[in-house]
Design a protein around this nucleic acid. Sequence first.
DNA 1: GAAACTAGTTTCCCAAAGGAAACTACCAAC
DNA 2: GTTGGTAGTTTCCTTTGGGAAACTAGTTTC
Lengths: 122, 122
Amino acid sequence: MNKKERTENSAECIKGMQAINDTMQLLSGKWKFKIVGALMKHGKLRFMDLLREVDGIAAKMLSKELHELEINLLVSRTIMNTKPVTVEYELTKHGQTLERVINEIEAWGLAHRKLIIQPMKK
Amino acid sequence: MNKKERTENSAECIKGMQAINDTMQLLSGKWKFKIVGALMKHGKLRFMDLLREVDGIAAKMLSKELHELEINLLVSRTIMNTKPVTVEYELTKHGQTLERVINEIEAWGLAHRKLIIQPMKK
DNA sequence: GAAACTAGTTTCCCAAAGGAAACTACCAAC
DNA sequence: GTTGGTAGTTTCCTTTGGGAAACTAGTTTC
């Protein structure tokens, strides 16, 4: 490997680390994955639906997390012209691209449970 | 969908959520992904190597995170018979299976940066 | 006009996460 | 015997994350 290749390789490394940071920052915390998961499974959901669907979350946290997801263009927020007003939350097209990531994380978790957690109990 | 199917579907849902929790618990925090990433790229690394390689980490955190990764059988710790003693950390076979997860997270982060972060600057 | 639903916000508090610096302990080289 | 390398641990402190409950505000139904 010559100097140019090493420099490029190092740059790739840093870029990759940065990319991992980007993703994890958007999805860090106790609730983001669960909210995205709920929206992935049900499509559109209103605030109160999410409050019921995401087990254990408080209104404050739901509100805060939805804001952050909206700012990052992963979730859209639509105020409906109903009485009383309802608000629909939905994954954006960009938000839907998280499916592959979430599937991998889920698959690894299942495998880990089979390989490590279950055998430990016996 | 009959009652049995609904029950099974709901059980699948819960299992999937649990799997996501399992994975994220093991890899939560500011440093775990970076440590695993460093070991994935370099193979074996000693404590001081990691301290230098993982940018910004303090000895306390590195020590704590390595313990947790070791307990969860993702990283192995080998004391070498050298003077002064050195310790080699390495991903276990199980730890190496994280590669697909990390690749997806990295790929999504890169795409996100191209789609959302870069255009915002212009 | 009181109760109940919508969608949040605000306040106050606690626990967990994380950082900086000092410290232990062993060994080698100078 | 002092400096410097190995691999950590300990202490003390600040920041962040998160939870419970009360509160705003508009609308509808009884």
